[in-house]
Design a protein around this nucleic acid. Sequence first.
DNA 1: TTTTGATATGCCGACCATCGGTATATGCTG
DNA 2: CAGCATATACCGATGGTCGGCATATCAAAA
Lengths: 110, 110
Amino acid sequence: MREPTFLVLTALTGGPLHGYAVIEDIAGMTGGRVRLRAGTLYAALDRLRAEGLIEVDREEIVQSRLRRYYRLTGAGEQSLTAETARLRAQATIAERRLRARRIQLGGATA
Amino acid sequence: MREPTFLVLTALTGGPLHGYAVIEDIAGMTGGRVRLRAGTLYAALDRLRAEGLIEVDREEIVQSRLRRYYRLTGAGEQSLTAETARLRAQATIAERRLRARRIQLGGATA
DNA sequence: TTTTGATATGCCGACCATCGGTATATGCTG
DNA sequence: CAGCATATACCGATGGTCGGCATATCAAAA
């Protein structure tokens, strides 16, 4: 799973959001580092819906503008849980190796 | 940074390895879950070398077969350190939200 | 003996998620 | 009135990965 996809699932874990709100939530979550392009976001939503990881919660018309809310499904929650565990495991391995490396090499590398 | 790239850098953090050994190390590191294709590995090595994150350590001929060893550069170590912090931060956010969700929804979702 | 599998590097086309831009439309603000 | 935020949606380009193939040596299995 790529980073934008992971972040979309994470955003929806907090409760149903419409597309644009997902972009905003991710921007906030990452301290402004990640701001998804519209193309990326709506393509990801379509794909995740086709995969059954999210589904349409409801649709609203606010100020004559459509808002389509999405929510995480049980499968989506499971998928995100597994992915998170994987991420954490990889981070732990990398950190352990980086620590060992710094002890051995003491900070001077090419 | 994509997962295979991250894993290649992690593999080389433990010390110089030749290409095939990187594949083996990653396979072991991930409990057999990830076994990089030759195409992926050598393309990644070329790319990372062009970016200055790794460099050729030495070349050996063992049983008339070439072994080209790669090592992590200082830039590579920095890059992996930053990426690891990012991964950990994302995992933490996702875990916090998943926990909150389970408390609120109590385990029954669509 | 032949063939399969492991070792080892490298090239190639295909796939597809993401990027970047554009289109459309409304409402608020400078 | 121009620009920006909101909101969805489509499109071509990019690029990392996948999957397969080629090449070569050596050991083990059939």
